[in-house]
Design a protein around this nucleic acid. Structure first.
Length: 233
DNA sequence: AATGAACCCAACCGCTTCTCC
DNA sequence: TGGAGAAGCGGTTGGGTTCAT
């Protein structure tokens, strides 16, 4: 037996909302709030819509505090930073961007930012300040990798990353000693190359913290060209 | 001007989490 | 404490728009 549908799909309207429906929903919520029950709202508001659809329409489009329009550089940077720290938790990321919804942020990432990253044009790394935040040593985690002292890498700290902390804690002591650390927060190495490092880090116990973005400062992946020592900007 | 490709975003789907009884 | 129902959430899709040829 499958999950019961949230509404009778045969009797609800689907697809784009009309201005009349928007007005009805906006008016009802303005006068009564959503009453703690989205499922019951459509009937009360005289809408032939699923409650989930009403909720989504309100939260993603009709809410008065929604900010429409293109994202600023600052918002982009914030998304990059948070994505690297917590991954695709869009609601959390959106909560840090006033007026933006999770759907907005997700769409923006999928259509613009991810592409920029994949093209190696992400400019966010320059915004990080050099600090006492420690870094993982690529060499220590990937001892078998071919080293090249001429290759520089962009490193970005994963500030306060609890998943990183627990992954680190779960490593055996010899590998822990290999991880360059200091201060009260852990940094995380990323943007070195695409495939092999992910696998190597995964096998080293960092599978939960591996960022999805890899590129060197020139925007090119550097498979097999790991640095003797890491540096950051 | 026509048309196919690429892009964008609103909306839907279904799984997970939360809340209440 | 466990189950049911509602809300929350992230992934995906559909279709309208823009761009390139």
């Amino acid at each position: 037996m499958g999950r019961a549908p949230c509404c009778d799909k045969a009797n609800v309207k689907r697809g784009p909302w009309s201005p009349e429906e928007d007005a009805a929903l906006r008016s009802y919520i303005h006068n009564h709030g959503f009453g703690g029950n989205w499922i019951a709202l459509p009937q009360k508001a005289g809408l032939k819509r699923c409650g989930k659809s009403c909720r989504l329409r309100w939260l993603n489009y009709l809410r008065p505090d929604i900010k429409h329009g293109s994202f600023t550089k600052e918002e982009d940077d914030m998304i990059f930073t948070l994505y690297n720290k917590i991954g695709s938790r869009w609601s959390v990321i959106a909560s840090k961007l006033p007026g933006r919804t999770d759907n907005d942020v997700k769409n923006h990432w999928n259509t613009k930012l991810k592409k920029r990253v994949m093209e190696g044009k992400a400019s966010h790394s320059s915004s990080y300040q050099r600090s006492s935040i420690p870094l993982l040593s690529a060499q220590s985690l990937i001892p078998s990798a071919q080293a090249s002292s001429s290759t520089s890498c962009v490193l970005t700290p994963a500030i306060g990353n609890q998943e990183f902390q627990s992954s680190y804690d779960s490593l055996d002591s010899s590998l822990q000693q290999e991880v360059y650390r200091g201060g009260s927060e852990y940094g995380f190495l990323w943007e070195l190359d695409f495939g092999s490092i992910t696998d190597l880090l995964s096998s080293s116990g960092f599978d939960d913290t591996i960022p999805s973005i890899w590129a060197d400062d020139s925007g090119e992946g550097k498979l097999g060209e790991l640095p003797q020592s890491v540096s950051y900007y």
